[in-house]
């Protein structure tokens, strides 16, 4: 009789833990300095940007603008730049997809195949990004240039016609975007793959899954949180970027970021720039929210 009970003890009821881990009281005070910073330098400017977007466009930087609740700014902005918006989101979507294709094997290899080289590989993932973003983009410009090695090679094997070029094409712009945002995809993917219990994959194999089926039905679903945050961290900056389009493309490849930047800094057409910014922000945030909802991730940050 009195057989030993060898199952590990159940953890204490979660209510008990929650009650103690999170103390009520003055804790929210810690939030105030940072929240004030965000309120003054992010929320307030965003609201103000919204009002700026409704100024009378006939004003100018020198003469000032009149607040006329000129909603038509938005219509003008959309008509004026709808192709830029479409191109930006298309480039960003392709970039995100290619990043996922490249980063997934890399993250998977680091998480499951790297053994004791895991930390070394992780360092190597971020190492190229220690150096300046602009310098790296500039060197891509050189590498992809008309007399550069990639173009010559592609011409030699006749993928590109002899007078074909890479620089100043959408391919170059997207290649630059992919390169620059790759670690934003790799690191979240790695983080969630690393949490996947390897025994689950073995269990799938034990239950007659081929390696591919095991990946499709077990590993990939478990890595979805990383896919979600990786795609977001890639898509958001890619959709607003204008450096790659400027350095690797021509005005034909310009994205919405180029237009906003020009409207603000060159033309100083603040109502137009503001309405473009608001549209971009609203579209991105809406896409993010819909995407996150559909992916079923509750906690955003």
């Amino acid at each position: 009789m009195t057989e030993a009970v060898t199952t590990p003890p159940a953890p204490p009821a979660p209510v008990v833990d929650g009650e103690n881990a999170r103390r009520r009281g003055w804790g929210w005070l810690l939030l105030i300095p940072g929240m004030l910073w965000l309120a003054i330098f992010f929320l307030f400017p965003t609201v103000q940007l919204f009002f700026t977007s409704l100024y009378d466009p006939s004003g100018s930087f020198e003469r000032g603008y009149a607040m006329t609740w000129h909603v038509a700014n938005y219509a003008d902005a959309i008509i004026d730049t709808s192709n830029l918006f479409l191109r930006s989101f298309m480039y960003a979507a392709i970039t995100t997809f290619v990043c996922l294709l490249l980063a997934y094997p890399l993250a998977y290899a680091i998480a499951f195949k790297s053994g004791r080289w895991k930390n070394v590989m992780l360092v190597l993932v971020i190492a190229p990004f220690f150096t300046s973003f602009l310098l790296r983009t500039l060197s891509w410009r050189a590498i992809l240039s008309d007399r550069g090695p990639v173009t010559s090679f592609l011409q030699t094997i006749a993928i590109l016609p002899d007078d074909g070029r890479l620089l100043a094409t959408p391919v170059a712009v997207i290649a630059g975007l992919v390169y620059n945002f790759l670690p934003f995809m790799t690191l979240p993917l790695y983080a969630s793959l690393d949490k996947v219990d390897h025994r689950l994959i073995e269990a799938a194999g034990d239950l007659y899954s081929s390696p591919f089926t095991g990946f499709r039905t077990v590993t990939f679903p478990l890595s979805l949180p990383g896919v979600v945050s990786g795609t977001l961290l890639t898509f958001i900056p890619a959709s607003g970027d204008y450096i790659n389009a400027e350095l690797l493309g021509t005005p034909k490849q310009y994205m919405i970021g180029n237009r906003i930047q020009a409207a603000f800094l060159t033309e100083r057409n603040y109502p137009l720039a503001a309405s473009l910014s608001i549209i971009l922000m609203v579209v991105v945030v809406l896409m993010v929210i819909v995407y996150v909802r559909r992916a079923g991730t509750e906690e955003l940050v």
Partner: peptide, 17 residues
């Protein structure tokens, strides 16, 4: 058994609850 209140009793003696 787990959930019977024994750990809570202990934590109240320790001052953690």
């Amino acid at each position: 058994p787990s959930g019977c209140g024994k750990t809570t009793t202990l934590r109240m003696v320790a001052g953690l609850d």
